[in-house]
Structures are given as structure tokens and as C-alpha cells.
Amino acid sequence: MEAGISRPLPGIEDRHAVPIRLTINGVERQLDVAPWTSLLDLLRERLDLTGTKKGCDHGQCGACTVLIDGRRINACLKLAVTLDGADIVTIEGLAQGDGLHPLQQAFIRHDAFQCGYCTPGQICSAAGLMAEGRARTRDEIRELMSGNICRCGCYPNITDAIEDVLKDRVSEPAMPV
């Protein structure tokens, strides 16, 4: 069942709609989507999952980063229709109930955000980065987090937060990502 903003697909969207099945934050959904609907718009406008942000709509800022089948991807450049069967995790799906994900805790602890608009994308990107296992040094974190622009300029704090969680994970390999 589709939660979120319930309304029929309007106008030309209805005529072109294609059925798809997505698992979003653990919930399976059957959706009819117009082929030109981006995953980002689907999340924000129809499913009311507005935690995923639109900062440029052209893959140039990283604010819309989500995890698709465990990989970090810019949701603005993915047409939802191409994702039939995919498993998607957004910022709303990272915390386990009241327990924040270690990255979310570290971002708060290190003051790794100001306005907060790029933050969900930064955190999802960091979760993807940890799953990739390619970042060990600060240089590597910086480079591999450069697809997420933070205009408030929190970069060193973001790097600190991620480094902190990476260090903890070495001693606690079972931590979920």
C-alpha cells in the first residue's frame, strides 16, 4: 500500500503510468509512476519522505543521496520506473526506532551540520562509503565525500564524524550500515 500523499495520478502522468514495486525503508510498495518521475520526486512529492533533499536536481550537489540496493546514488538522476524491484533506504530508514544510527549520533556530536539541508544526503553518503570499505584515511574520507556539497562549510566536522564512526567500527565489526 502506498502511504504518503494519496491522490490519483493527474493528467498525462496517469496515461503513461507504469506499475513498479519498490521496498522503501523495509516497506514494500506497489506504485504506478509516470516514466519521467525521478526517485527523488517520488519520495518527496508522493510518499512524503521529504528527508531526501533536492538541492540541484542535476547530480551536482549530492543532497538527494539515498541507498539503492545498498549503494549510494543520487535520487534526482534515477527515474523511479527503472528501479522496479529495488531496495531503497532513505534517511528516514537509518535509525532503528528511537536509536539513532552511529553516523547520525556522530554528526550531532561533531556539529557536522548547520542548516541541515545537505545532512540527510551526507549521512546516507557516509553510510554508503562505509559499506564500500574504501575509506581508511582522512584524505580518503574527504575525497570520497566530495560528492556532497555543504554550503554551510561543515566539511572538517563531517570528516571528523565519519572518522569517528569508522574507528569505532573497527572494534565493533557487527555494526549495521
Binding site: 519522505l49 521529504t50 528527508g51 531526501t52 532513505t90 534517511i91 528516514e92 537509518l94 535509525a95 539513532l100 547520525q104 554528526f107 550531532i108 556530536r109 556539529d111 551540520f113 541541515g116 545532512t119 540527510p120 549521512i123
Partner: peptide, 13 residues
Amino acid sequence: DRVEGRLKVTGAA
């Protein structure tokens, strides 16, 4: 820590 931190890191803001 920022009082609104939790809202911002969970996407609830």
C-alpha cells in the same frame, strides 16, 4: 549539541 540536531539527522526537519 544543537537542540534540533535529531530532527536534522533523521530527515524529520
